[in-house]
């Protein structure tokens, strides 16, 4: 379980922990008042795209079949991954590019959305760097999941 303490302490206003996890709530929930204008979120609207967790597609089926063939049913859960299966990992990244379905999609969707938002709205280099929120978090998540997939 990951517990993210969203309440930031102190008055520094810094720190990016938890931003990814509340992003969709800040952007999609909260009171809307008609008398106020809302800042344009062009580029960030991609957040609304419905990503199904398991996508019914040939790519997904083949990926699952592949993953099943690599399953070692004798081993218990949480087996020490040992050396990574290099071929498996390469196949995995190939499939990710195409289907981008399944379990690893979520964090990337957010991160892609933000990059798009940045490139369509950032006018200077400095702004673009600033507008990528918390790049550490999704990268870590993706790495962790990829590691699990290649176990």
């Amino acid at each position: 379980m990951t517990v993210v303490a969203a309440q930031q302490q102190g008055g520094s206003g810094g720190g990016s922990s938890g931003l990814y996890d509340v992003l969709e709530l800040i952007l999609d929930r909260g009171l809307v008042i008609d008398a106020f204008v809302r800042v344009s979120l062009v580029g960030i609207e991609i957040l609304k795209i419905d990503v199904r967790v398991v996508v019914a597609s040939v790519d997904t089926y083949l990926r699952f079949a592949e993953a099943c063939n690599r399953l070692d049913l004798e081993a218990g859960p949480r087996k020490n991954p040992g050396l990574p299966d290099l071929v498996g990992e390469m196949t995995e990244s190939g499939a990710r590019g195409k289907s981008k379905g399944a379990l690893s999609g979520a964090a990337e969707t957010l991160s892609d959305a933000f990059k798009q938002g940045a490139s369509s709205s950032g006018s200077s280099r400095e702004e673009e760097r600033e507008s990528e929120p918390a790049p550490r978090k999704p990268r870590r998540t993706t790495t962790a999941r990829r590691k699990e997939e290649s176990e």
């Binding site: 206003g13 800040i26 952007l27 344009s40 938002g117 600033e130 507008s131 990528e132 929120p133």
Partner: peptide, 21 residues
């Protein structure tokens, strides 16, 4: 020129968290 940037999203969340406390 307000845009949905990291710094501003954080500021929004931070002000609400502090005020809510």
């Amino acid at each position: 020129q307000l845009r949905p940037k990291r710094r501003d999203l954080l500021a929004h969340q931070h002000v609400l968290a502090e005020a809510g406390a």
